[in-house]
């Protein structure tokens, strides 16, 4: 059963790479294999298939880390803490990826590497939260303290994130696409109040996009699963010694 997911992932991700990069972007798509053109973006729009999933994953990872942290607080099972750390470590990796890919893309699309656009700021804050989480963990010796306090910090830090999601539309109208208009005549940018980007994507792009989200999520769970199993092995083998 386990093997099914891996092969599914292999196929899905391959499809996503092909589906994201092959279909040409034309002004008036005639058939299923052509993506619509957004003036100003053209080929760069393809990033949506690769950059957005990393951002989504880093948020998911944080939620998983917090969930297992709370589980640890209830049951004091050290394996829950291992799952929490491994989730957070991967979340940090994806957060860095999201920030860097976004920044590189921003350079070519909007002119400079960083703008303090609300969404850019919030991914940066998430980076800081992950950094603080690991800084806290490395400053604690006792295994029990480490697990307990990092779980609590993850809860407290999580409580402040809704403020960012709702402060965003208030602070400024950002550069990030809040709504992508397929109509080339309009240039309206409205900041969306949700973390999930609500925009109108062409149907065929949507298919590839959701395939991409699925593929990356499966990839994440696979990596997470491996990481916490390795942590468990290391822990158990050390205990025996």
């Amino acid at each position: 059963m386990r093997a099914f997911w891996k092969y599914l992932l292999l196929i899905l991700m391959t499809l996503v790479i092909l589906g994201g990069l092959i279909p040409p972007i034309v002004a008036y798509p005639k058939n299923f294999f052509e993506f619509p053109l957004i003036p100003g973006l053209e080929d760069k729009a393809r990033i949506i298939f690769f950059h957005v999933p990393t951002a989504w994953l880093t948020v998911l990872a944080y939620l998983i880390a917090m969930f297992y942290g709370i589980r640890y607080l209830k049951k004091k099972n050290i394996y829950d803490d291992m799952k929490s750390v491994s989730a957070a470590a991967l979340g940090l990796v994806f957060c860095i990826l999201a920030t860097v890919t976004g920044s590189v893309w921003a350079k070519f699309t909007w002119g400079s590497f960083w703008h303090w656009d609300p969404r850019e700021t919030s991914i940066f804050i998430l980076l800081l939260i992950y950094g603080a989480y690991f800084a806290l963990r490395s400053a604690l010796d006792s295994e029990e303290k480490r697990a307990r306090l990092s779980a609590i910090y993850s809860i407290i830090a999580f409580l402040t994130t809704p403020f960012f999601i709702f402060i965003m539309p208030r602070l400024m109208i950002g550069l990030h696409p809040g709504s992508l208009e397929i109509d080339p005549a309009t240039g309206q940018i409205r900041a969306s109040a949700n973390p999930v980007i609500k925009f109108q994507m062409a149907a065929n792009m949507r298919v590839v996009f959701f395939l991409s989200l699925t593929a990356f999520t499966i990839l994440y769970f696979w990596f997470w699963n491996l990481t916490h199993r390795i942590l468990k092995l290391e822990y158990n083998s050390q205990k025996e010694i």
Binding site: G131, A135, A139, A157, T160, F163, F164
Partner: peptide
């Protein structure tokens, strides 16, 4: 040194 590191993201909003 840990104190500002932990407090900054929480106080930022």
């Amino acid at each position: 040194t840990l104190y500002p590191v932990l407090a900054f993201p929480v106080l930022l909003p």
